[in-house]
């Protein structure tokens, strides 16, 4: 049976998170950079913006271009013809963010300003 095969284990813990209707803001530079990265795949692929634990301040941003996910828990926001997806579990953390794009040799790329964050790491990738 093993130590993990007995009685008394709970069902998986479910996180109760507040779900809000997400609004996203993108600068012109960010939209331009996003279109360049989509490389014509706007009909089949989407940008997913998400948050996960980690970083110096508690949470890390993540941005991925992937095939449209089948998960029903996403909210879909259209940004200049590009589909941006935010999962309901991240909605309260990411609502109202401003996505910018900075072209520098070091530390460049997409940058996120988050009105929900009390603090942020100097690298700009972590918030809390």
């Amino acid at each position: 049976m093993g130590i993990l095969g007995g009685e008394g284990f709970s069902l998986p813990v479910v996180s109760e998170t507040e779900v809000v209707d997400v609004k996203l803001n993108f600068t012109d530079k960010a939209i331009s950079a996003l279109k360049q990265n989509m490389n014509g795949d706007e009909n089949t692929h989407v940008l997913v913006i998400s948050a996960q634990s980690g970083g110096c301040s508690g949470y890390l941003y993540d941005m991925k271009i992937i095939k449209k996910p089948e998960d029903v828990g996403f909210q879909q926001i259209s940004i200049d013809g590009i589909n941006v997806f935010v999962h309901n579990k991240d909605s309260s953390m990411l609502n109202g963010i401003l996505v910018d794009f900075k072209e520098t040799l070091m530390g460049g790329g997409f940058q996120i300003e988050n009105p929900n964050a009390d603090r942020a790491c100097g690298c700009g990738q972590s918030f809390g």
Partner: peptide
């Protein structure tokens, strides 16, 4: 536990 479950990414 809440820190761990809240920090799990959607995928």
């Amino acid at each position: 536990r809440k820190t761990l479950i809240d920090g799990k990414s959607w995928n």
